[in-house]
Design a protein around this nucleic acid. Structure first.
Lengths: 331, 331
DNA sequence: CTGAAAGCGCTAACAG
DNA sequence: CTGTTAGCGCTTTCAG
């Protein structure tokens, strides 16, 4: 059994030079129809397919980009960042780019560099450390941020329209007659937290609804923490009739707390979350949530990054993806 | 600003040949201490790091493996396969292997081949099509299966100890006094389904508990389908006092159905799931489930695959990872 | 222990 | 439109 055929074998079998074979595969239009056909034929016969490594070596480009998840303890298991990854992967898979995936933590721990991993561009998901960003910039590696934003650095960012999503949520609750809407926030990515919080305040104001100081609470990002914070919130007398949660895990915590206090959803309490995680429909009642099109965000990241890598000028600094409230039974 | 330094620059600066620089990086012990030091110094100064592409080209190995998720409509978003991926990634990241990730579907659609993607080995997650497996084998590409098994093909498989997990679940329910335990199964990966079903039957038998025909049902893999199947199951009179579910999504459906029928968990009905998905703790009460160490499975896949790629003989055909019932409030 | 030199498979001028 | 040829950066005999 012969080893995998090279361009040279095809050249010989088809009776043309290697240069022509090369052209046939990388730029068919620059080869006469008849010649092209012969090359394809020979290639088919030999079961030849161009060696990507050799090609990379010759053109001095690797076509490799990286996606680093920058969130404490998060891995590919974090549904939000995994969905973005999915979008990136889809897009990348239909080009000839390749994707390296890791977390900020692992990247640093392993002492990886863009050079050592032959990366030509990078997508940073979440709150990336400035040192990481600077490192890439210093090496001339294009960077795109997703779900995060750093003012004054001219770094393209892909984000969701948080403000509008939150607005829809508050409008929805208000239109259902709620006047005392609480917010339970979590210690999340500061960019997102700020966006969501400010939007909440603004939306309430727009509706002319006051926000009681005691009605805004903060918790950690796990269900238990959210549950206990919610227990406190719901023990106020009188208690809020609705809770807007900074994400779905927190919302799940609120639902658990409500159940323990024997409050019925949505009659006694309306709950709405953010992100529209897959488990929203596992809850009973199903959770109303602000849907974020993470896959789309992933796609757009790749678009921005390719623009950057192709040296395009004026790549948009802000790419925002619409959000949409999905109303379910919890509100 | 000079372009990235090559082995040649280091060679010149350190006053040794490129061969020696090469050796210094790939096999330090074959270079005199003093020389080695000089090389490192020069490399440091130039900020040199070996070019992986060129290296691949020279040694004719890519060190690239692929992980393909073989499940209808599943992507990296499927928590189970994502957890395995996480384990693979962790392991791979601490070696100099690289990981390409895709789905069986995308792989086929894009017409990718091991050769075109320079893959040297592949991990197939779930029920891979025989045609895919054969294709890789025909190309001499080592294959490892995870969460699946094909008899008589001598393909190393990494699986969970399904039987024991199910046994623990049934034992747990029986010891809590349940005698009428139903099973709600889903149209999942046939290998897993069979394992879980057979184990259920065996465990019930071991306990001397009869299984009523009407108490075993099948549904699709979404919550709605599970919910309606569960509604039927729970409408039997008398109804089962416990339901063992083939996975957590199905279990969530049972919980929803129970709630709609105003059954209290665990007093009126005990529910246990399989997989120990992250949303188990989001439910109220939290869901008892059979935990599967997917990350470990991922690690082991890489181990088996590397053994295969290194030409080791007698790579174990079966690698089984222990499972453990996590008892929570739903049972 | 170290150096010289011949590739690895492909591309990109440059000629024809 | 096609062929010649010189690399791309690194490894690896084979000598020394």
């Amino acid at each position: 059994m012969p080893s995998t055929p090279s361009i040279y074998d095809v050249s010989r079998l088809s009776g043309v030079s290697t240069a022509t074979v090369s052209r046939t595969f990388s730029c068919p239009s620059r080869v006469r129809e008849e010649t092209r056909r012969r090359v394809y034929e020979a290639a088919e016969l030999l079961n030849y397919s161009p060696n990507a490594i050799a090609r990379s070596m010759a053109i001095q480009r690797t076509n490799k980009i990286a996606y680093l998840i920058c969130k404490q303890g998060a891995t590919i298991l974090d549904e939000f960042y995994a969905s973005i990854c999915d979008g990136i992967l889809q897009t990348v898979n239909r080009t000839d780019y390749q994707l390296l995936m890791s977390t900020e933590e692992d990247w640093k721990l392993s002492g990886a560099t863009a050079q050592s991993k032959s990366i030509e561009g990078v997508i940073l998901g979440g709150k990336a450390q400035m040192s990481l960003i600077s490192e890439f910039r210093a090496q001339g590696i294009p960077v795109v941020l997703v779900n995060y934003f750093v003012p004054g650095m001219e770094l393209p960012s892909v984000v969701a329209d948080e403000a509008d999503g939150v607005y829809q949520a508050v409008e929805h609750l208000a239109s259902r007659g709620h006047e005392r809407i609480a917010m339970l926030a979590g210690r999340m990515n500061p960019y997102v937290l700020t966006e969501r919080y400010n939007a909440f305040v603004a939306a309430m104001k727009a509706r002319g609804l006051p926000i009681k100081q005691s009605d805004v609470k903060m918790c950690d990002l796990d269900v238990e923490s959210a549950t206990s914070a919610a227990l406190e919130l719901l023990s106020l007398t009188p208690r809020p009739t609705a809770v807007f949660c900074a994400n779905d895990v927190i919302a799940a915590g609120v639902c658990k707390a409500a159940r323990r206090l024997a409050l019925r959803l949505p009659e006694d309490l309306a709950v709405v979350g953010c992100d529209d995680a897959s488990f929203c429909v596992m809850l009973e009642p199903e959770l109303t949530s602000v849907h974020i099109d993470c896959r789309r965000m992933g796609e757009l990241c790749v678009e921005r990054l390719t623009e950057l890598m192709e040296g395009k000028e004026n790549v948009s600094e802000f790419t925002v993806v619409p959000t949409k409230l999905i109303v379910r039974r919890s509100s």
